[in-house]
Nucleic acid binder design. Sequence first.
DNA 1: CGGCATCCTAGGTGATACTG
DNA 2: CAGTATCACCTAGGATGCCG
Lengths: 123, 123
Amino acid sequence: MSVTHTEVSKTDGCAIREVLDRVGDKWSVLIVVLLGHRTHRFNELHRSIEGISQRMLTLTLRTLERDGLVKRTVHASVPPRVDYELTELGRTLLVPVQALDDWARAHRDDIRTARVTHDARVS
Amino acid sequence: MSVTHTEVSKTDGCAIREVLDRVGDKWSVLIVVLLGHRTHRFNELHRSIEGISQRMLTLTLRTLERDGLVKRTVHASVPPRVDYELTELGRTLLVPVQALDDWARAHRDDIRTARVTHDARVS
DNA sequence: CGGCATCCTAGGTGATACTG
DNA sequence: CAGTATCACCTAGGATGCCG
């Protein structure tokens, strides 16, 4: 482990919180993962992400674009066509996100089991 | 990439959302990281994590315990002493969390720059 | 020391309707 | 197709006070 001190200092310990503040919301990582596969159009994302509202998709994409993780390309055509893709920075984020995803798949059952066990003991 | 399809299915695509639903909150990862260093007492955590309320520390620890990520040990003494430490499962989570932390430290400036640039262009 | 109970607010999110 | 605008809600989280 690179961090050896105990306190959560402003300059170091909160780095991970900074990421989570941006990507820890309800939809960002989902979008990043999807765009990790390939470029998507707006409605492709809308259809692929079950449960997202048009509003939240727009807002989340705007934030990701602002943070330099996603690139938005408008094609001047009728009907309009807008493509979204990961930037270079966005692709680097895919690595740790994938690591977290792998952990999730490997241990989701462990958590579920722990819950059931714990809840049974408390009852 | 292990996932080759595009849709976010219930069985696969939401695994990462499951993790974020649990540790994507404001304090969980911070606690996990601190406990990754060593066992902490309640008030040690309270002092180490700047800005956390007693209420949220308790609630977060309870959830982490319930999910099998943290082990809580009560020592029958006066005054009472309660130790918190990572479980085996909790320690495995430390790996991807650390990966995310590394990414954060490496790219926080990239995001900040992207923001400034983007905001300047919009203005 | 290590909590829990209560109250309360801010903002993240959803639903719906409208537009270039 | 790809948004924007408005409203309304709900809950994560903070503040405070009491307890074993």
